[in-house]
């Protein structure tokens, strides 16, 4: 029993770190744009299928597949940014969201056209043997997932705190008006942030696909859902919160799956999510929705 819990927690933390990356991608975009890009998951899906295609055509190794995944995610994201965000006025947040949904439909249909089968193989890391730490097992791909996610988050932290671009991103997220006045090229920073989010999402997508070994176009919906949920659990607009939200979601899902099965997992996950939102609206990181209310009051 206790052992099961420990084992589930380890597995949950690994998958949760990938959720965390997805949530960080969402948070970056939301923070800079104040708009929701629900085509984030499908953009990653495009990347994953690009990787799978490279793999099936030329049986490419891990590194080319990884790069193809990133390239696909970045290209699809750039398309989304141009059509659904850059082309729509800044104050029309709803329109951007609806538009990104429309692009989602396009991306999904396009992928289904190119890959008419139901599932596709994705190269996996399973050549490394299972690690045993005392009585618990650690799947090597989970360890790789966790370590990659950790490294990426450190890198992101460095970019955001040490580079000029990072400073601009933080200014823009904190106060768009101030950023504009102090000479930040808002459109350019927003575009680059979109691409940065796509890279992070691409890495998360690659890790997940490489763990599962098979992919379907449904992974787009799946990635959007997990990322959104983890972001909101953690508290909107906080990168640390997004990571924590992802880890919590991963662990809860793993435990519920083990003890209650798939149907039980869904019920428990969504009940917890609903309760978390109602009782803890500022998220685990304790930061309230940066938008609506404070902004409305500021206008008084």
């Amino acid at each position: 029993m206790l052992l099961d819990i420990v084992q589930n927690t380890l597995d949950g933390l690994a998958i949760g770190s990938a959720y965390g990356l997805l949530a960080i991608g969402f948070t970056l975009i939301f923070g800079v744009m104040r708009r929701l890009n629900i085509a984030f998951g499908p953009s990653i899906m495009v990347g994953i299928f690009a990787g799978a295609w490279l793999h099936s055509q030329w049986s490419a190794g891990m590194i080319p597949v990884f790069l193809a995944t990133l390239a696909g995610a970045v290209l699809a994201s750039a398309y989304v940014e141009r059509i659904s965000f850059a082309a729509i006025r800044g104050d029309a947040a709803l329109a951007s969201m609806a538009s990104s949904f429309a692009i989602w439909m396009q991306l999904e249909e396009a992928v289904v056209h190119v890959f008419p089968g139901r599932t596709y193989a994705f190269p996996t890391l399973q050549t490394i043997p299972m690690l045993e730490i005392g009585p618990v097992f650690l799947r090597p791909e989970y360890l790789a997932m966790f370590l990659t996610a950790a490294a990426l988050i450190l890198l992101l932290q460095w970019i955001l705190t040490r580079t000029r671009f990072g400073l601009e991103v933080r200014t823009l997220a904190d106060n768009p008006e101030a950023a504009r006045v102090s000479g930040v090229n808002v459109a350019q920073v927003a575009f680059l942030t979109f691409l940065l989010a796509a890279v992070i999402g691409g890495v998360a997508g690659f890790l997940i696909a490489a763990t599962d070994g098979q992919i379907t176009p449904k992974i787009g919906l799946w990635a959007t859902m997990k990322g959104l949920i983890a972001m909101v659990i953690g508290g909107l607009g906080s990168l640390r919160g997004a990571l924590i939200g992802g880890l919590v979601l991963g662990v809860v899902e793993a435990q519920a799956q083990w003890f209650l099965g798939a149907a039980g997992r869904e019920i428990v996950t969504y009940t917890l999510l609903f309760l978390a939102l109602v009782m803890l609206p500022s998220g685990l990181a304790g930061r309230a929705d940066a938008g609506a209310r404070t902004e409305a009051l500021r206008r008084l």
Partner: peptide
């Protein structure tokens, strides 16, 4: 009743959570 005081995004995700909760309950 408990969700209207949530703002924007939180409300959207809460409705999503409730809908998926209903769907997974119907599954059993």
């Amino acid at each position: 009743w408990p969700t209207t005081r949530l703002s924007g995004m939180h409300y959207a995700i809460a409705t999503l959570a409730f809908a998926e909760f209903v769907r997974s309950c119907l599954n059993v």
